[in-house]
C-alpha cells in the first residue's frame, strides 16, 4: 500500500484500511488483558494466570443480586405459561389431544402425516408414557413460544441494522458452538433446578436458528423489491409487513422448524436438572442401566421428534410454493 498523505479519516477506517494496524491493535488489547490477569493473580507455574473463573463467579453473584427483579419475573412468566399449558394438556382426555394432533397434522401437512401422527401418539400411549409425553410437549411448546417471541424480533432487528447484526452474530456463534449441556449451568446458577431452568436452557439452545433464519430470510429479499417498496413511499413498518416478512416467511418457518427440533433435543437433556418429561425416563434408565426402559423412552422421543418435524417442515414448504 502506498503510504502517501492521507486525508483526515476516522480511527475505525484506519483500522479497516490497514490490516497491520488492525492486528497490532488487537494484539495490544490481548497483551493488556494478560498483564491485567498477572496483576490480579501473580505468576503461576510459568503461565500468566488469567483469573476468568473468579471473574465469572463474581460477575454472576453480582448479577443475581442486582437483577433479582428481572430473573424473578422471567421465572414467573415462564412458570405461568408452562404450568397452565401442562395442566391443560393433562386435563384434556387423551383422545381429544389425539384428535387435535391429527387435525393439525392434516390441515398443516397432509393426510399421510396426519395418519402417521395419530398412530405414533397412540403408540406412545400404549407404552404408558402419555403423561410424560404431555409434559414434554408442554416444555417444548413453552420454550418454542419464548424462542419465537424473542428470536424473530431479534432476527428482524439484526436484518435491518448491521450494527445489531455485528453484536448478535458472535453471540449466536458462541451459543451454537458450545455443547448443549453447557447451558444447563447458567440456567442452574440463575434459576436453580426444576422445569423453569429447563425451559430457559432450552430457549438459549434453541433460539439461534429462529434469529438466524429470520435475519437471513429478510436479508435475502431481493434488493430491487426493497427499492420498489421505498419508491412507492412505504414506511419502514410497511416495508417489513408488506414485503420483507411475507417474502422471508419460508426461511422464518425453516427457522421455527429447527427451533422446535432443537427444543426437543434440549428438553431431554434438561431432565438432568429435573425438568421432567420423557427425558426423565431416559436419565433414570441410564442411571439404572435399564435397557428396556431406556429403549421405550427413546422410541417415544424419536416419534415425537418425527411428528413435530413433519408438521412444521411441510408448513415451510407450503409457504414456499405459494410465494415463488
Amino acid at each position: 500500500m502506498a503510504a502517501t498523505s492521507k486525508p483526515t479519516v476516522g480511527f475505525v477506517q484506519t483500522l479497516n484500511r490497514r490490516p497491520l494496524v488492525k492486528y497490532l491493535f488487537w494484539f495490544g488489547i490481548a497483551v493488556a488483558l494478560v498483564l491485567l490477569g498477572w496483576i490480579f493473580n501473580g505468576l503461576k507455574g510459568g503461565f500468566f494466570e488469567f483469573p476468568l473463573e473468579n471473574w465469572v463467579n463474581i460477575g454472576v453473584d453480582w448479577l443475581i443480586i442486582k437483577l433479582a427483579v428481572v430473573f424473578d419475573s422471567i421465572k414467573l412468566i415462564t412458570q405461568i405459561v408452562l404450568n397452565n399449558l401442562e395442566r391443560f394438556l393433562l386435563w384434556l382426555p387423551w383422545w381429544v389431544v389425539l384428535i387435535a394432533i391429527i387435525l393439525i397434522a392434516w390441515r398443516l401437512a397432509s393426510v399421510r402425516v396426519a395418519i402417521f401422527s395419530g398412530a405414533a401418539m397412540y403408540f406412545i400411549g400404549t407404552l404408558g408414557l402419555w403423561e410424560l409425553c404431555m409434559s414434554t410437549l408442554a416444555l417444548i411448546a413453552t420454550a418454542v413460544l419464548i424462542s419465537i417471541v424473542l428470536g424473530i424480533p431479534i432476527g428482524i432487528l439484526s436484518a435491518r441494522s448491521d450494527r445489531v447484526d455485528n453484536v448478535v452474530r458472535p453471540v449466536l456463534d458462541a451459543m451454537q458452538t458450545m455443547p448443549a449441556f453447557v447451558y444447563l449451568i447458567p440456567a442452574l446458577m440463575f434459576f436453580g433446578i426444576g422445569k423453569v431452568p429447563g425451559v430457559i436452557a432450552t430457549v438459549i439452545f434453541a433460539v439461534p436458528p429462529a434469529v438466524r433464519l429470520t435475519n437471513l430470510g429478510i436479508r435475502q429479499v431481493p434488493g430491487d423489491l426493497v427499492e420498489a417498496a421505498h419508491t412507492f413511499g412505504s414506511t419502514g413498518f410497511q416495508l417489513l409487513l408488506k414485503v420483507q416478512i411475507p417474502l422471508a416467511l419460508p426461511s422464518i418457518m425453516a427457522g421455527v422448524n429447527q427451533t422446535i427440533m432443537l427444543s426437543l433435543s434440549m428438553v431431554v437433556l434438561a431432565a438432568m436438572i429435573a425438568a421432567g418429561g420423557l427425558g426423565r425416563e431416559v436419565i433414570m434408565a441410564l442411571g439404572q442401566v435399564d435397557i428396556g426402559r431406556g429403549f421405550v423412552a427413546g422410541t417415544a422421543i424419536v416419534l415425537v421428534a418425527m411428528i413435530l418435524d413433519r408438521i412444521t417442515q411441510s408448513l415451510g414448504k407450503k409457504r414456499k410454493m405459494s410465494t415463488l
Partner: peptide, 21 residues
Amino acid sequence: LREARRHKISMVFQHFALFPH
C-alpha cells in the same frame, strides 16, 4: 420525501421488481 415518492415521483425497474407474493 415519502410524500413526494407517494404522489409525485414513480419508478419502473429494469428487472420489473414485482412483488412475487
